[in-house]
Design a protein around this nucleic acid. Structure first.
Lengths: 241, 241
DNA sequence: CTAATAGTGTCTTTAAGACAATATTTG
DNA sequence: CAAATATTGTCTTAAAGACACTATTAG
């Protein structure tokens, strides 16, 4: 039982410990929630295109009242930042499970004009079919924005956070199966390729793409039907081996 | 000038704003400082081997008194977490510049037995020749540890933080020029290869390695000398193009 | 048949893996 | 010369890039 300079054991030390007067920040989480939606075309034979979107909430209070902001909230003492993000994600979208990843912690002094707030940014990926938007207490509107239409003029440093998330998402697309977190239960390889293309913002070669993702998906015995063209085989996410 | 539900402008709102009673954590930074050192061989002709090491500090106070811990400290209201990490890095090693990257924010409740502390972990890479170790106020010893000799038994969750840093470092070696941050001003390609091998923990093929790093380095007109073998050309980090 | 997508074949290009041969140096 | 490292050459393998061809469907 090692004693410190005052002759205290660890137990005794902790009992008399006083957090003292070091200044403490509020710690928040902000979540960049991505989804991919179909953008309907005009031709009944043509496939719908895919578009990457981010959920934003219009602020109903100062500061930045009326401006769009990322969903988020404060971290509680009995939870990790990841748990706080998961809780906020469920509150905003109704999605209980789903992919959630810690991105980066933003801490520039003055980033919140009210007080000292450090924000641990997260990224979430959800299948848009499962979403059930709810307007929260501190929001009077929630809306999906195509990433190409997000201007500056977002609240706080949220434009920077979104840029960080897009960069991470694009990088991880190349060497993980992250894209599958945006897909419905069953999907075609062309749909999956459209999701990759929407996120990367560039066309991919079909043959090479299929070679690459073959390792990530599992074929089913189902096919699409009632389209004006050859049916496509439906795939699911490959389950862990 | 948009007013809120109480008829206040943003300026008025901020003036009357009261941070309230939300609980706030202390926010700290912990830094995994990597360096690579020569491990002297016995044969005058043989090259020295390289070893990846991490700086740890023996705690002189409760909690975890006597155990080894990462250098770190609390974040101040007038700085970012990166600036706090940079300040602590300079305090511990005397290194003013150098590579510093935010890793991950650790926040499991109870990770610090004193009080609610969230830690934003960073990773630093420094050339061991520039280091000038100083023992800080809350440390009675500082020492470099080979990553293979780090056991469990570290203070707090620092073993987990180090594991996270090693994983990040290994991943980034493959697609960045991070290894060059560990090198002295001038170095041979074999020395650089030894650094890669020490970090990855596996041998690399010489010809393929050279092809790969040729894009990252710039040759000089200097050579090694006084070794018992053919002189090697010295290279420097390629400057931005 | 037509327009559209699905799926495959294959040639080229590039990068990495795997060895091995040749070049220099100092004691 | 001997022992050691330095540097380059080249064959093989694997993955990605780039096109083009064939297959299948609803209307």
């Amino acid at each position: 039982m090692r004693l410190d300079a005052n002759g205290l054991t660890e137990k005794q030390f902790l009992k008399q410990y006083n957090p003292g007067d070091y200044p403490r920040p509020s710690v928040a989480v902000d979540i960049v929630i991505f989804t991919v939606v179909d953008v309907q075309g005009d031709n009944y034979r043509k496939l719908s295109e895919k578009e990457l979107r981010v959920l934003l909430i219009r602020r109903g209070e100062h500061p930045f009242i009326g401006q769009w902001a990322l969903p988020g909230g404060f971290v509680r003492p009995d939870e990790t930042v990841g748990e706080a993000a998961s809780r906020e994600l469920a509150e905003e979208t109704g999605v209980q499970s789903g992919y959630l990843e810690q991105l980066y912690t933003f801490s520039k002094p003055g980033r919140d004009p009210r007080t000292w707030v450090i924000s641990c940014a997260h990224m979430a990926l959800i299948d848009s079919n499962r979403v059930n938007l709810k307007s929260g207490s501190d929001a009077d509107d929630a809306q999906w924005f195509a990433i190409s239409t997000i201007k500056n003029g977002l609240a706080f440093d949220h434009a920077e956070i979104i840029a960080c998330a897009i960069q991470r998402l694009r990088a991880k697309l190349e060497y993980t199966d992250l894209a599958l977190r945006l897909m419905p239960e069953k999907f075609t390889l062309t749909q999956l390729q459209q999701v990759y293309e929407a996120i990367l913002g560039k066309p991919l070669y079909k043959a090479a793409f299929r070679r690459k993702v073959m390792g990530l998906v599992q074929e089913t015995d189902k096919y699409t039907s009632d389209k004006g063209h050859r049916p496509a085989k439906l795939y699911t996410k490959k389950t862990g081996e």
